[in-house]
Simulated scan of single mutants.
Amino acid sequence: MGLKTFIESWPVYRQLTGDDPLGRGSAAYSATTRNLVPRTATADRVVKSVCPYCAVGCGQNVYVQDGRVTQIEGDPDSPVSRGRLCPKGAATKQLVTSSGREHRVLYRRPHGTDWEPLDLDTAMEMIAERVLRSRRQGWQDEDEGKKVNRTLGFASLGGATLDNEENYLIKKLFTSMGAVQIENQARI
């Protein structure tokens, strides 16, 4: 590249000699930026979602191309967040696309130091068995002579992005098992 070509490639030179004296348009573009296309422009579809991080429940637009998430942005139609996301919400694409994301159940045995993969059916059986054992071991028929029929062996703390219907169903499930310590993060 010659000296003249090199100097003409500088944005300040293009700003002073071209039709963009304030440097807010073409003078600021390099050959690379001139050819950039937004990740949202190539999406096949946009799926509405809710940020999973906190109790605010900011709306998100998830851009999908060929079955893969290409971008996640704030949903301007959301009455909660009006298109804005905090830094954690803006980084939720990494939850789906990170190479470090696990797509299998991992289990570490008591006193173990390593994780081992489990199939989903085995993991669900282990969870069900432990819930039933905790219920049995923590069951109380009476408390100070008063009939209570409850268990203090487990509790439920629902996540922040659960909606009213999901919280209702969780409350019903845990109440039917005798639990009394049931809460959701949205109320905390």
Rank of each mutant, 00 (worst) to 15 (best):
G2L: 10
T5A: 15
F6A: 13
I7R: 11
W10V: 10
Y13I: 15
Q15V: 06
P21S: 06
G23W: 00
R24Q: 14
G25D: 13
S26Q: 14
S26V: 12
Y29E: 13
R34L: 02
V37T: 09
P38M: 03
A43P: 02
D44H: 01
V46F: 00
V47M: 03
S49P: 01
C51Q: 02
P52I: 00
C54R: 07
V56C: 01
G57R: 06
G57S: 03
C58P: 03
G59E: 04
G59L: 01
Q60E: 15
N61P: 03
Y63F: 03
V64F: 00
D66T: 05
R68G: 01
V69Q: 04
V69L: 04
T70W: 00
I72Y: 00
E73V: 09
D77P: 04
S81A: 11
R82F: 01
R82W: 02
R84Q: 14
L85W: 04
P87D: 05
Q94Y: 11
Q94D: 15
L95K: 08
S98L: 08
G100W: 08
R101F: 00
R104Y: 09
Y107R: 14
R109S: 14
P110R: 14
H111W: 10
G112T: 11
E116H: 14
L118M: 15
L118F: 13
L118C: 08
D119C: 10
L120S: 12
L120Q: 13
L120I: 12
D121M: 07
M124C: 13
E125M: 09
R130M: 10
V131T: 11
R133W: 07
D143N: 10
G145F: 09
G145W: 11
G145A: 10
N149M: 12
T151E: 03
T151V: 05
T151Q: 06
L152W: 05
L152S: 13
L157Y: 08
L157W: 03
A160T: 03
T161S: 12
T161R: 14
D163P: 05
N164F: 05
E165F: 00
E166R: 12
N167E: 10
Y168M: 02
Y168D: 01
A179R: 04
A179T: 05
A179H: 02
V180P: 01
I182F: 01
A186V: 10
I188H: 06
